[in-house]
Structure formats: structure tokens, C-alpha cells
Design a protein around this nucleic acid. Structure first.
Lengths: 147, 147
DNA sequence: GTGAAAATATTGAATATTCAACAATTGAAG
DNA sequence: CTTCAATTGTTGAATATTCAATATTTTCAC
């Protein structure tokens, strides 16, 4: 019972490939849903993380939303232009910038959450309750063991 | 036992997010390994798919390696310059181009396979045999149910 | 058979991402 | 205290990706 693939195994037996494929497919589905609001997936992540009402530094936020720092900076620039979020310099540490969500951003986030939840409900429907729960558990555990 | 997250759930409970996070982490690890040969993950995928010795059209290949068509075209241009692969016009259907690996590409692919297998062995070590097998099974099934 | 529609791959312009360098602030050693 | 290193965020240039348009070939309806 080979756990790691052999060197001549098809690429479809590699965990890295299966993850990339599944992520691509699910992300594409979500992207399509969120397009109703004209918002990329990453902006939904940002709004959702900021929705706890606390200020988050750029570094913190970049980790949370799975973006590199310069990419995040530029995306935040756009969101500031759209009045979805705003910057405040951290009074405790003036190197940092704290990000907050605006009322407009909160309202948009609610609509996006609804679309995202509906997508996941759709997945659960065709994929099954048990499988979804178990898959999430295994992914969390993989992420934990990779650090 | 909530299967889909509620609208105010943290983003970390969304399947789409967990997949993106896990993929990012594992892909980054693999990227680091393959960097020893100076090759991006996508080129390894291309070489591996072509390693069955059959000619593959660009469309076929794009699907298999999870790249959009124009992105693939440009990456193949580079690989042709590096003499790793070559194009042949399909005699059965002259709209198509069939891609093949060169000997140089095959040799590189062998070295890359070894690095990739070693990565997955490393994952299995810390994550466990059972978990890895089960995660792969669930991912395959998710991909299947998503189409 | 002919002409319209579909399929395939590529190109170029527009957009996005990344890498390396920078500026500003804080921390810490001496 | 002062200086040097580390942290944080941004910027600009280089690179990569994507979207829309194109060229070519095939398929299909008539």
C-alpha cells in the first residue's frame, strides 16, 4: 500500500497536485458567485477578517488572507479608493498601520457572506455532509502539521 | 453539527479557505524543493504529463497542468528555448499542436520526480500515512463531485 | 460542395504579482 | 544616550498572467 507516490506515478497521485486541482475548482466556483458583487475572492477574505471590528496590521492581514505583503498593499489601495476599508496608524507602534472596515465594507461583506455560504451549501449537497466535515478536519490537521 | 459555516463564522471554517491555505503551504514547500533545479512547479507538471511519451495537445495539457491556455503557451515557449520539450503539428488535425518531451526534459523530469517524491515522503512522516491516504481519497472525490 | 459555426492555438495589450530596494520606526547592545 | 540591527509597510521595475482579438483548420448544415 504505497502512501507516497513512486517516481513514475501519474501526477494525479501526488497530494500537491490534488490540492491544487481541488483548490482551483472550488475557488473558481466561489469566484463566479462573488462576481455578482464584482469582488474578487481575496477582497471577501479581507473584509471578513476585518469584520471582527478590531484593527489588523498589514502583516497580520497578509498572513490571514494568504497574500504577499506588496500584493496586499496594492489591493488595500483599491479598497480604500472604494471606501470599503481605511487605514489608521497604530499609536502603540508607529511602524504599523491598522486596517478597519467601513460601514460600506460591512454591508458588502454581509452580501458576500451570503453568497459564500450558499456556495458551500451547494458543495455539501453534492459532496455530502460527512465528507465535507471530514475533509475540513483533515485539511486543518495538515496545515497544523506543516508548520 | 453545522456542516456549512454560518454567515458570521470565521473564514477559517470555510472549505474554500482551508483548501487555499493548504494548497499554498504544500505548494510552497514543493516550490522550495524544485528550486534546486531552478524549475517552477508548473514545469514539473508539464514534464511529468508529457513523460508518458505520447503527444499531448495544448488544450489537453493546459487542463492537465492546471494552467490557462495563454499562460501555457508562453511557458512552453520558454521550455522549448531550454530544449526541454518540442512542438509537432498534429497530422490528424492541423489545428492542433502535439507536445513531446526531449531527452533533456526526461532527464530533468527524473531528477524533479525524485525531489517531489521526497517531499511527499516528508509530509507522510509528519502527517501520517492514514491521514494522507484518506485526504487524497476525499480530494479526488470532491473533484469528481464538482464536475 | 459551400459557407457558417465551432475548435484550437497564439498574440498583444491591459492587468496583476513578485522581487529587491527603500523609508520609517522600534529594539537592544554597548 | 547613541548607534546598529531588526521590523513594518510601501514603492518601482521586472516578470507573469489574463482578457479579448486573431488566424487557421475542421465540422456541420444546407
Amino acid at each position: 500500500m504505497a502512501k507516497p507516490p513512486k517516481e513514475n506515478s501519474p501526477i494525479t497521485e501526488h497530494l500537491a497536485y490534488l490540492l491544487a486541482q481541488a483548490n482551483r475548482e472550488i475557488n473558481r466556483q466561489l469566484e463566479t458567485r462573488l462576481a455578482k458583487e464584482g469582488v474578487p475572492v481575496e477582497q471577501w477574505r479581507i473584509l471578513k477578517v476585518l469584520s471582527d471590528g478590531n484593527g489588523h496590521s498589514m502583516g497580520e492581514l497578509a498572513d490571514a488572507v494568504l497574500l504577499n505583503h506588496p500584493t496586499l498593499t496594492k489591493m488595500i489601495d483599491r479598497m480604500v479608493s472604494d471606501a470599503l476599508v481605511y487605514r489608521v496608524q497604530d499609536p502603540k507602534d508607529r511602524r504599523k498601520v491598522l486596517m478597519f472596515v467601513s460601514d460600506r465594507g460591512k454591508a458588502l461583506c454581509r452580501r458576500l457572506n451570503s453568497l459564500a455560504v450558499s456556495q458551500e451549501e451547494h458543495i455539501v449537497e453534492s459532496y455530502g455532509d460527512k465528507s465535507t466535515t471530514e475533509l475540513k478536519r483533515l485539511l486543518e490537521s495538515l496545515i497544523g502539521s506543516a508548520n
